[in-house]
Each structure stands twice: as C-alpha cells, then as structure tokens.
Amino acid sequence: MHLAYPAVLAVLLFCVGLYGVLARRNAILVLMSVELMLNAVNLNLVAFDVWLRDKLHAGQALTLFTIAVAAAEIGIGLAIVLLVYRNRGSSDVDRLRDLAERPDGTDPNDDLTGGPDAAGRPRPDHQAEAAA
C-alpha cells in the first residue's frame, strides 16, 4: 500500500482537529477535536511501524500508550471543564478571559457569576441528573 494514503489521511485528520480546537466554543468540543488530533498521530505511528517492520513494535506500543494517556487526559480534562462550569456557569472557552486587561478595570466575568443567588445562575447538577 502506498505510504502516502495513511500519511495524508493523518495530516487531514490532524488539520480538521486543529480547526476544531481553534474554532469550537464549547470546551468539550475542543476536547473532542484534541482526540481527533491524537488519533491522527496514532494513525501515523501505526502506519510507519508497519512500513518499517520494527522489531520492537515501537510504533504500536507507543500508540497504546498514547491511547491510555488520551484516556487519562480526557478524564482530567472533563473534570476541569466541569469545575470551570460549576464556578463560572459556562464552559465556553472564549468567555474565560480573566487574563485579559479591561480598560475600566472591571472583572470581565461579573456578567457570568453575578452572585451566588443570581437568577441566571445555571444548575449544572440538576441538568446532569435530568440528562442521566
């Protein structure tokens, strides 16, 4: 099989994931895009392992490790996203702008947090239960 097929497929998957990371607003969708990029890398690893006929099967072993690390990453990442959502009421990446300077010096997230009992405060847990 021509090596260019898996290589080009991996490249395209990677760039699709790249677009997703840069363009998606929801943090979980961003995580999905990261998974796409990881899979593109895995595909490359496997293809080159097969091509080189490596005695140690380094490519496949590394793929397995990558999958495991990706699983761990997705667990931690989701935990972080949930924490952010609980604190901010939103998991939109482009609304987490604490690091940006505001000319008037106000907190950029005032409109999100509002206060502990603000009417617009979301109830993530309630929603989770309903969804479950």
């Binding site: 363009a23 979980i28 989701l78 996203v81 989770a128």
Partner: peptide
C-alpha cells in the same frame, strides 16, 4: 465520557447557533 461531560455542562440539545466562536475564519 465526553457525552457525560456534555450533559453535565448542560449542553443544549438540538442546534446551538453559537457553537463556533468568532475566530472561525482565522482558524479555518
């Protein structure tokens, strides 16, 4: 796990018009 995450963060079911952020074209 991702599906659980979506649900726990109260992701809207159905079309959400603001799924992509403003710098979509730059990303593209």
């Amino acid at each position: 796990l991702l599906l659980f995450g979506l649900m726990l963060t109260k992701a809207p079911i159905g079309r959400s018009p603001d799924a992509d952020s403003g710098n979509r074209w730059a990303a593209l």
